[in-house]
Nucleic acid binder design. Structure first.
Lengths: 217, 217
DNA sequence: CTCACTTGTCATGAAGTTGTCACGATAAGA
DNA sequence: TCTTATCGTGACAACTTCATGACAAGTGAG
């Protein structure tokens, strides 16, 4: 279940949504004001934001522009086309028009969350589990120590899974932009990762190019 | 721009959508029937499917259940809540209710496409799928290892499909401009590609000239 | 149908690339 | 200050690629 921020100036609606979220097992926080919403969103602790467009202070579009992080579902009283277009092009994940059925809102929340789940912070492959939020790695349940560079490299590989990355590219992404070192350094760290995670077969060497983390789809 | 399948039994609406897709630069194919839609979707050549729920034969929900591959936007005349819930829980990416503004449909299409990030350039032929963006090749789902030269050559063939290329030309394109070697080298690599991709019948020998990747359109 | 020529196929070894290990410099922590 | 861990470097072994040559099979002009 998810932690959801409700941004809606109408207290009754806000509470109604809150009640229903609670009912299906989500947790939430409520705010009634645009500026406060921006602050709360930047805390970065929510899995989803329900965002009313008409707000005191700054409106929902402004809030989105200022933050644009979490998945967002717009809520609006207006059915105006220009509102929808604006919201969608700004990158909202969905859109719902007041008055709406609570069940529909809950369904749309599920869809958006399910979709966002794909960008989950946990990555697992074979026996290894990489928790990208708290930077831990376990293999077969046992915690594995990775040095900082090893972890950086691992993250890069995971974020670019199935894509062949050149040594230069890896240096750029995991070491820093203009690192000027021997490219054999990359090999060494790759070896470390392979053996620590048991990924000898997973991190493929792409001859004359670099490496690729291979994940079957 | 995307290749979109329109599944809608009302000819007027179908054509109207088609016209507008064309207007903004998408390509499309049209069908008016559920069973045919299933067949076409399984061809796997569309970036997005616009799917009416009420269809002759089998309805949109059934179509989705039978295929569930591409991104899908449901279209329906009914605003019934149970329809929406059903569609969303089945995994539709979006939902639009007739009568709708064409501009809104186009905006939703953009959102879904952006989300699906079909920026991957993929070339597929028979069982083989060549992913030109991340430099991977699969045959029947299995990843195939290609050496650098083999991959270069493959790319050249794909980019010049249906065109006969001389050995000299191939050397120039895949090896580098002033490569000075025996041209028999090309033959060897062609053989490798043929057997690795199962393209014995696809890469045709053009006697006294060179080779051609044959793709029917 | 024949023969000259072209292409398919395989084996080989040289050149080049990657795996692996050990060492030492440096930084971090006690 | 001393200890410890990290990381870049170099050396060498192991491996991969790929051009080459040899020969078999295929092709087409006459």
């Amino acid at each position: 279940m998810a932690h959801i921020l409700i941004v809606e100036d109408d207290q009754d609606i806000n509470n109604l949504i809150a009640k229903n979220l609670k009912l299906v097992g989500h947790t939430y926080r409520q705010t009634f004001d645009g500026m406060e919403a921006v602050k709360m969103i930047t805390e970065n602790i929510f899995d989803l934001v329900l965002l009313d467009i008409m707000l005191p202070g700054i409106d929902g579009f402004e809030v989105l522009k200022k933050t644009s992080a979490e998945p967002i579902i717009f809520i609006t009283a207006k059915d105006g086309l220009e509102h929808k277009l604006n919201g969608l092009s700004l990158g909202a994940d969905d859109y719902i028009v007041k008055p709406f059925e609570m069940l529909e809102l809950l369904a749309r929340i599920d869809v958006v969350l399910r979709r966002a789940q794909k960008n989950t912070t946990i990555f697992s492959l074979d026996n290894a589990v990489v928790n990208l939020s708290d930077r831990t790695v376990t293999v077969g349940g046992e915690l594995v120590d990775l040095s900082p560079r090893e972890y950086e490299l691992l993250e890069v590989l995971i974020k670019n899974q199935n894509i062949a990355l050149s040594r230069d590219k890896l240096l750029e992404l995991a070491w820093g932009y203009d690192y000027m070192g021997e490219t054999r350094t990359v090999d060494n760290h790759i070896q470390k990762l392979r053996s620590k995670l048991g990924w000898e077969e997973r991190i493929k060497t792409v001859y004359k190019l670099g490496y690729r983390l291979e994940v079957k789809r």
